[in-house]
């Protein structure tokens, strides 16, 4: 059904292969390979077996990263996830110490996360005037505060029933179980964000929430759901965290939110919303994990490793600006 002028518009996508090759995500793959190469060069112990052996303690955060990607695409932020991990782990340990069966302990861990996320989502969706930074700033302090009160003067707690949770730290061959779980979750989250109607709605909201609303998208309901999911994933993270530390304290999870946001941003997801692919964050997470393992094996100061990661983060977000500056310089040179 052509219009009066008979003008046609093309619907053929062009240059998809080129776009794929030159995307941020492909760059991530290259950097990942670079890190693996680096690891092999600097450390004789950088074998697949060893890497998988040290991976579990870094893997739990990736669960949160998957959900944080959704929150960032929405254009929101959640800095309370670390505290949710703390609270979930704490309540799980308390339940465990009280003699509850393992299944209930797991349930409490995850449901605590769900409840916390649900609270975040409730406030965010009903008081839309409030920036989510402030909301989660408040809840961050509250969740950790509840954990502090629950832990009492000691400030820490250990799991009594260590055997049950060891299930989660088992290996299949050389690959830890947690790795498979992460892969499964990652696959689900990435596909949902990139290929489903729900995922597209997130991008719409993050790009222009007003236009999304006028197009019939239930913006507040979706935000509520995503925050709840983030809290739940923090609960899952807490579970795997317990599987490697067997206990919780008032400082559990401190800094997780920033590390997770750093992974997402490094992976190409912008904090302004509506931009980036979750697979980028996924690659970024493993880049950071493998780099940390490599540097750890040559006994680099753990703090120095954080310095390097911080520098990597800043350089990665400066790349567009550097690119523009170079382009401008080239233009000026051409004019002269």
């Amino acid at each position: 059904m052509a219009g009066k002028s008979g003008r046609t518009i093309s619907a053929e996508p062009r240059g998809t292969v080129k776009k794929l090759l030159f995307s941020w995500e492909s760059a991530m793959v290259l950097v990942f390979l670079g890190v693996i190469l680096l690891g092999n060069v600097i450390s004789p112990y950088y074998t697949l077996k060893n890497v998988f052996r040290e991976m579990p303690k870094y893997l739990s955060e990736i669960f949160i990263m998957l959900a944080m990607g959704y929150i960032l695409v929405l254009g929101d932020i959640d800095i309370s996830v670390g505290s949710i991990v703390c609270l979930s782990a704490t309540l799980a340990c308390i339940a465990d110490n009280a003699g509850l069966p393992f299944v209930l302990v797991v349930l409490i861990c995850i449901l605590t996360g769900l409840a916390c996320g649900c609270l975040n989502g409730f406030i965010a969706s009903h008081f839309t005037e409030l920036p989510t930074m402030i909301i989660t700033l408040g809840t961050q302090i509250i969740f950790r505060g509840i954990a502090e009160v629950s832990l009492g003067p000691g400030g820490s707690i250990s799991l009594q029933n260590k055997d049950a949770i060891k299930l989660l730290s088992r290996k299949i061959g050389i690959i830890p179980v947690s790795f498979f779980v992460v892969l499964v979750f990652a696959l689900i989250f990435i596909v949902v964000l990139g290929r489903t109607t729900f995922g597209r709605k997130l991008y719409a909201i993050g790009s222009n929430s007003t236009a999304a609303k006028y197009a019939g998208i239930d913006v507040q309901k979706i935000r509520w759901i995503v925050f709840t999911v983030a809290g739940t994933m923090a609960g899952v993270c807490a579970l795997f965290f317990l599987a490697s530390t067997y206990g919780a304290s008032t400082t559990t999870g401190q800094g997780f939110e920033m590390e997770v946001i750093a992974m997402c941003v490094f992976g190409g997801i912008a904090t302004t919303g509506g931009k980036g692919k979750l697979i980028g964050g996924f690659f970024a997470a493993f880049i950071i994990v493998c780099l940390r393992i490599a540097l750890g094996q040559i006994n680099m100061n753990t703090q120095l490793i954080l310095v390097i990661i911080g520098a990597m983060l800043i350089v990665s977000v400066l790349i567009p600006a550097i690119g523009n500056a170079l382009r401008l310089a080239r233009k000026k040179a051409e004019k002269a």
Partner: peptide, 8 residues
């Protein structure tokens, strides 16, 4: 096309 949008 049915509304004659001017775009490529």
């Amino acid at each position: 096309e049915s509304v004659d949008t001017k775009a490529v």
